[in-house]
């Protein structure tokens, strides 16, 4: 199962990270995680799985536009979110795709937890 472990700011730094809005669905084989991260490029994205924590961090490149900021409804485009993942996720099979500011992660379930049909041997 997947649960959210950080609905808080990172305490150690003064930098404020946005919590990306996320949709998650589950099938028999995978968990699909879709996160909104506008302005993020592949190079600035960090996805780490450590024990039971899946951490997604993205820090935007410094603003190249030096024109003075007159009005802002958002600050820098930095994102961070951590999810707790269970034993059912195969740590070595996580796919990531970044498109139009949306990061899609596919977490494959390990074979051991997948539903398995048990065949019955015919004994005469």
């Amino acid at each position: 199962m997947m649960t959210d472990t950080n609905v808080k700011n990172s305490g150690e730094s003064r930098k404020v990270f946005h919590i990306p809005l996320t949709d998650i669905y589950e099938t028999a084989d995978i968990y699909s995680v879709k996160l909104e991260m506008p302005g993020i490029v592949k190079e600035n994205l960090d996805i780490v799985i450590d024990n039971d924590e899946l951490k997604i961090t993205a820090e935007s490149s410094p603003e190249e536009n030096t024109d003075s900021l007159k009005y802002a409804e958002f600050r820098a485009k930095d994102f961070s979110r951590t999810f707790r993942v269970g034993n059912d996720v195969d740590r070595n099979r996580i796919d990531a795709k970044l498109e139009n500011g949306i990061l899609t992660l596919t977490l494959h379930k390990s074979e051991a937890v997948k539903p398995k049909k048990i065949s019955i041997n015919q004994v005469n």
Partner: peptide, 22 residues
């Protein structure tokens, strides 16, 4: 969408966050 407006000399730049929109 949330926007940011920058201004300098004779130009204005507007940034809007529109994830997932083509």
């Amino acid at each position: 969408p949330p926007v940011q407006i920058r201004e300098a000399d004779d130009r204005i730049t507007i940034h809007a966050l529109v994830p997932g929109i083509t």
